[in-house]
Simulated assay, not measured.
Amino acid sequence: MAANQPTILALDFDGVICDGLKEYFETAWRTYCDIWLQTDETPPDNLAKKFYRLRPVIETGWEMPVLIAALLAGVAEEQILQEWHAIARAIVQENHLQSAAIAQKLDFLRDQWITDDLASWLGLHRFYPGVIEKLDSLINSPIQVFIVTTKEGRFVQQLLAQQGIQLPAKSVFGKENKRPKHEILHELITAAKTLPASLWFVEDRIKTLELVAQQSNLDTVKLYLADWGYNTSDERQAAQNHDRIQLLSLSQFADDFSTWG
């Protein structure tokens, strides 16, 4: 195996391979309407665009309808970017809600949608340019490819299958694994077929990469922040200033590994 390429390539899904912003917004809007008893189910103009811009602040699903509540309450976008956690907690408390209950409702409505009309749900996802071609070129190569994501593995496989990419279930670590990504990465290295293992990890959340960088048993893993994903300019700057994390462009991702730096 060449020194300038990995033996194991681990990829996040949403924000790296697939853009699910439209689905995120639609699910968040349906949940908001249900919890906040919104009778007019047509979202206001420009609400979706604001939601897309602010998607990087969301860490877990329950925050999605709360972000819509913040926007409709008139909270400024810049304030949300700077103070999101405090804003989200305040909205939950003021409305006598619980994050777990919001998450449960969101999952229920999403599952109901998937059951009723899987085709329309899948149809709100798109793949970033060049990514499917890159995956296709790696499927039969010596490089082991894994998806490590908080999305359910079955949906990852369905979405990829629509594009002609068949990944075995053992190569997809989804929401159902209920483990931190850094634990999964360590497992991949431990179980590597080719030794010594060289694992490269591409993720669009800098906090996830920073947590991986803190693990002493992952000090050889190459970490890349996907600059086309759900992150902000401040987060991309933080990646450039980090001694372990490298900023990766979509054109680099689609190109030869030697261009990754």
Results as ranks from 00 to 15, higher is better:
2 A>Y: 11
4 N>F: 14
7 T>V: 02
11 L>Y: 09
14 D>R: 00
17 I>A: 05
22 K>E: 14
23 E>Y: 08
24 Y>E: 03
25 F>G: 08
26 E>S: 09
30 R>N: 06
32 Y>D: 00
34 D>T: 04
34 D>Q: 12
37 L>Q: 14
41 E>N: 04
61 G>C: 04
69 A>D: 03
73 A>S: 08
76 A>S: 01
76 A>E: 04
79 Q>E: 14
79 Q>W: 01
80 I>C: 00
86 A>H: 15
87 I>P: 08
87 I>H: 13
88 A>G: 11
88 A>M: 14
90 A>T: 15
92 V>N: 14
97 L>G: 04
101 A>D: 15
109 L>M: 06
109 L>G: 01
109 L>F: 01
110 R>Y: 14
110 R>K: 14
111 D>S: 07
112 Q>K: 11
112 Q>E: 12
112 Q>V: 03
115 T>A: 13
116 D>H: 14
117 D>T: 05
117 D>F: 03
119 A>N: 09
120 S>I: 11
121 W>K: 06
124 L>P: 01
127 F>N: 08
128 Y>I: 11
128 Y>Q: 11
130 G>K: 12
133 E>C: 12
134 K>D: 02
134 K>A: 01
136 D>P: 00
139 I>K: 07
143 I>Y: 11
148 V>Q: 06
150 T>W: 02
152 E>K: 09
158 Q>K: 15
158 Q>N: 13
158 Q>A: 15
162 Q>N: 13
164 G>P: 00
165 I>W: 07
166 Q>W: 06
171 S>C: 00
172 V>F: 00
174 G>N: 02
187 E>A: 05
188 L>A: 12
189 I>H: 03
194 T>K: 06
197 A>L: 01
201 F>T: 12
201 F>K: 07
207 K>M: 14
213 A>E: 05
214 Q>V: 05
216 S>T: 13
218 L>F: 03
219 D>C: 09
224 Y>S: 05
225 L>F: 04
227 D>Y: 00
246 Q>A: 11
246 Q>N: 10
247 L>R: 06
248 L>S: 01
249 S>V: 06
249 S>M: 12
251 S>D: 15
